[in-house]
Design a binder for these strands. Structure first.
Lengths: 111, 111
DNA sequence: CGAACTGTACGACGGTTATCGAACTCTAAG
DNA sequence: CTTAGAGTTCGATAACCGTCGTACAGTTCG
């Protein structure tokens, strides 16, 4: 059987309302930058599980800290997140970032 | 007569030691981002006077606040500053930024 | 010299942020 | 139903940051 229950419905900013300073601030934090790089490296077309990011990325931050950073990245417009059962998936919003600020994400990831 | 006195000798980080997170944090602040854009627009090859940035850029922040932001930009590696008499000049470190993170500065300035 | 101008250093303040543990919700599995 | 797993929220704490006014230092000009 399929569960149609959308348990919380994540909110994401529209492409128009995403602010450059918010994106830069989101990327300026070492843990968040590492999250973004791990997602960029390991995520497929349908994203990657947040848990896998944590496990494979070698993060030392606590669960609540990671949750906080994901929220910052999502509200800044850097990532999209959605539920898959009890787990969460995440992917970069390249289609947004590459249009609004071409070259920005690539420059940050190439380091 | 020429005054050989170098009144303080500004310190700038080497290209090797400049950190991406510091650059992003420096650019993530609205006033600093506006400073960078004003310098990028109006500075010639030998930079622009900080005073001109303040006057022509329409900044409302106080002197001490502006001085603080210039210091952050300089220590992050985003700008170079040097004395010309009693006034200070500033220019972007494009030769550094464009090599270390190609496309980053252009992306930020194109907005 | 003395006054005006340009910029820095310091201390204070208020607001923001990164971090954690504990309690909680929701889902999946037995 | 019960247990385990994944993730959020809340409260607390400590550190950081942007802002300003004041005091100060170096330069230029009369």
């Amino acid at each position: 059987m399929e569960s149609q229950v959308e348990q919380h419905e994540l909110t994401h900013p529209d492409a128009d309302t995403v602010e450059l300073t918010a994106v830069l601030a989101a990327l300026a934090e070492p843990v968040r930058l590492k999250i973004v790089r791990t997602v960029a490296e390991r995520a497929g077309d349908d994203g990657i599980r947040c848990l896998d990011v944590w496990q494979q990325g070698g993060f030392t931050a606590s669960k609540s800290t990671m949750s906080h950073h994901y929220k910052v990245l999502r509200e800044a417009g850097v990532v999209v997140m959605w539920w898959v059962g009890a787990k969460k998936n995440v992917r970069l919003r390249r289609e947004l970032l590459d249009v609004r600020w071409p070259g920005l994400l690539d420059a940050v990831l190439a380091d």
